[in-house]
């Protein structure tokens, strides 16, 4: 198809393949952010509130892991999920689930590190009150997470931005299979390699628009929530 349609035409005509790609991108990245939140928020809160030997090192490591190279994560997850790897029996390689796993690994340190910082700052403010209320460790963590919820939305958005933007990890573990594991970013990589630069740029603009819309939604939710809860 030497004269394929432009990205704008695809969007305007409601091209089902394009929407399937957009849907998969959102499914993978949002699932990864959700899983990473389930792991990263409790982990970050735990590090914020616990004193243990080597804690400073763990914090430095966590902050450094925010910059994990996606291609390295992709390779590691590839080796783990491969039939010849330790988790091969699950048969996850080259599936959307594998992409979720890879992005979860990428995003978890971001959410954990930002949660740690947020919760630690809030803990300094709340420590006396919560201690005076004789609250147990779990009660403290829950109270801090709840009261930090608006700042944590920013952490989730940072994680989502990272997940939605990366191609290095998911192209390795997903395989960029048409109609199955092809996302916005892997499609852009493919169109670039096919030399269809206008379509690649167009898809890039679609991706950026989606990221902006997700951020705008989250931001307005945050604003509305803050007005109610201060």
């Amino acid at each position: 198809m030497p004269d394929g349609p432009s990205a704008l035409q695809l969007v305007l005509s409601g091209d089902p393949a394009l929407f399937a790609i957009v849907r998969l991108s959102l499914y993978v990245s949002l699932s990864a952010v959700a899983l990473a939140a389930l792991i990263g928020i409790p982990l970050g809160a735990w590090i914020a509130l616990t004193r243990f030997p080597g804690r400073q090192g763990v914090i430095v490591l966590l902050n450094a892991l925010m910059g994990l190279p996606p291609v390295v994560v992709g390779l590691a997850v590839y080796l783990a999920l491969s039939r010849s790897g330790p988790l091969g029996a699950f048969g996850l390689l080259f599936t959307p689930s594998a992409m979720i796993v890879a992005q979860t690994v990428l995003v978890t340190p971001i959410i954990a590190a930002l949660t740690r910082q947020t919760i630690e700052d809030l803990w300094i403010e709340y420590r006396d009150e919560l201690t005076a209320m004789n609250l147990g460790p779990l009660g403290r963590v829950m109270a801090l997470i709840w009261d930090a919820r608006f700042s944590l939305v920013t952490a989730l958005l940072a994680g989502f931005g990272r997940a939605a933007a990366e191609v290095g990890a998911i192209i390795i573990v997903g395989g960029n299979i048409e109609g199955f594991t092809r996302t916005m970013t892997t499609a852009i990589a493919l169109e670039t390699s096919k030399g269809d630069l206008p379509l690649a740029v167009g898809l890039g603009l679609v991706l950026i628009s989606i990221v902006i819309v997700v951020n705008a939604l989250a931001w307005s939710m945050r604003r509305a929530g803050e007005r109610l809860a201060g």
Binding site: E125, D128, E129, A143, D147, A229, G230
Partner: peptide, 10 residues
């Protein structure tokens, strides 16, 4: 406390 911390709630 002298400067009570208000929880971020109503």
């Amino acid at each position: 406390f002298q400067r009570p911390a208000m929880l971020r709630r109503s």
